[in-house]
Amino acid sequence: MNRPKTCFLLFVALIAALAPFQSAINPYYFNILISIGINIILGVGLNLVTGYTGQFSLGHAGFMAVGAYLSGSVTVFLAPRWLPALGGGAAGETALFLLALIAGGLGAGLAGLAVGVPSLRLKGDYLAIVTLGFAEIIRVILQNMEIVGGPRGLSIPIRPTGLFGTYLAAALTVYVVVLLVHSTYGRGFLTVRDDEIAAEAMGINSTKYKVIAFVVAAFFAGIAGGLYAHFIQFITPEGFGYLKSVDIVVIVILGGMGNTPGVILAAILLTILPEGLRVMSGWEFLPDAVRGIVKNRMILYSLLLIILMLTRPQGLFSSGGKWTQKWRAMKRRGRA
């Protein structure tokens, strides 16, 4: 058994062991923990597209929406019929949930393929605009689909999303992205980001790599959407607007493009940050201007990003840091 698989299985065993205690967690913290897990999936997935492959996508929330609505629909429409057949009870619910999640992931992955194949010829800003447009189209379609509630939203009767499911999906996302990238095959993603012309000249089919990155990220965004839908139990098209896409992009930029541990940290930080800000906006002794900024997350994000670009353009948790260099030096010595 090799190291990545062992790490993955150890982590799964750990969350499986901790899962029974989740009911003891205060609902507020439980909420935050689940949100962190979902944001890790979204951030690490988008990092494959934007960080490792260098394709700027502003429509990640669109794939999340596809996954949320598709998996939500599976549960809403199939539960009454299938749940008895699956034996009812907790086991049946889990099986249906799994089915719903996979449907959501595959649906989003297909959407990724449909958007990616024609649009990945575009570069930079053009690609950002097309992906943004795609997410808006999804939102408008959902708003006009009466069967899933249109603008009123869709409520999901069950709440099977738990710590185990969420962190299993998060671990799976990290595992897939890290293993993909850390192989001779996966170096292709980075070459496309670094220099597409040189990549093609070395025999690398850059379109193929871009589409793969896009589809993998969309698949996991769909899973994240499914987890979210079965946690919040009420989804509206507005919840997957372009601000949500921006949130995910900010996670990737803050974490450092193509730096998975950094992106995980950024996902944690940016999930906790709004909570901290909410507390701060209640502090009477702060001047009104400060409280105003603190209340508006987007203003703060903009400021944060500007400061970041000026001081640490490689991301808050960049891989050029002291510790990573030490770690690399250690690995090198180990090999020699």
């Binding site: 001779t184 170096r187 980075l190 070459t191 670094d194 220099d195 040189a198 990549a199 000249a201």
Partner: peptide, 15 residues
């Protein structure tokens, strides 16, 4: 036109 973010070894490996 080397792959700027990759090490010497990875530049060759990618090819």
């Amino acid at each position: 036109r080397l792959f700027g973010s990759l090490s010497v070894f990875d530049n060759v490996r990618a090819a």
